[in-house]
Amino acid sequence: MSTLPENALSAPPRASVHQPASGRPPGAARVALILLGKELRLELRTLESVPGMALFALSAFVIFHFALNRAALQGDLAAGVLWVTILLAALLAINRLFVADAQQGGFEALALAPVPPGAILAAKAAALLIYLLVLELLALPAFALLLLAQPLAAAAFGVLATLLLGDIAIAVIGTLVSALVIRSRARDLLGPLLMLPLLIPVVIGATSALSPLLAPHAPDLSSWLSATGLRWLAVLGLYDLLFGLIAYALFEFLLED
């Protein structure tokens, strides 16, 4: 681009434009990284997903405060409010995940380029995961500040592990569902309707893991793990793995045509 010296361009470009490609097509992992880079660049440029998610989460906390008429939450109520908020905020990003590709020809461009379907799935799911992590980076302190009865710091590791595993499930399932509904009429409606039942097991797992951590006398890490934590982290991990495999096996069928 502009860093190139002038004389590099002064050679007659037209002759070289049709020369056989000198570079070698990158491998699938590298392609996924390139796609992820494009995804994040687009989000930074348009700010269509993350700011909206964060604002939504903040509004949801305020709504829960008034709707439940509580100044502070704890235990399973706190875990439920946090997860419902994250889940609904995620739906905002999931609805938008493939819109730019569908409307601006990205699907066709990718179908024509040397891009394996698995790389598209991985890049989209990774982008969604990053959006969710950024959202939580903003929403978790807000949640602790606005609604939580006791400080969060003591339970930090358990909370983060649970959120991460839950986020992976949302990212994988969200990418699959988003690709599934993108070519249908009424995709804005169908996306959430498909997502929510598929994520109920994640809600069960994540809230079950979180609620002891947000209870008044939070257990320390090892006693939490041995009581319920480890079991629920394993359930979430298995759910991530299973849906990851399903999405990987099925994703290519959603990219045809």
Binding site: A21, L42, A100, A109
Partner: peptide, 21 residues
């Protein structure tokens, strides 16, 4: 088949990198 929010060179270098260029 270009992303409208990205610049011309961003679009092109995205495709160039996919082709190993």
């Amino acid at each position: 088949l270009l992303y409208r929010a990205l610049t011309v060179s961003e679009n092109l270098s995205f495709h160039a990198r996919l082709h190993g260029q």
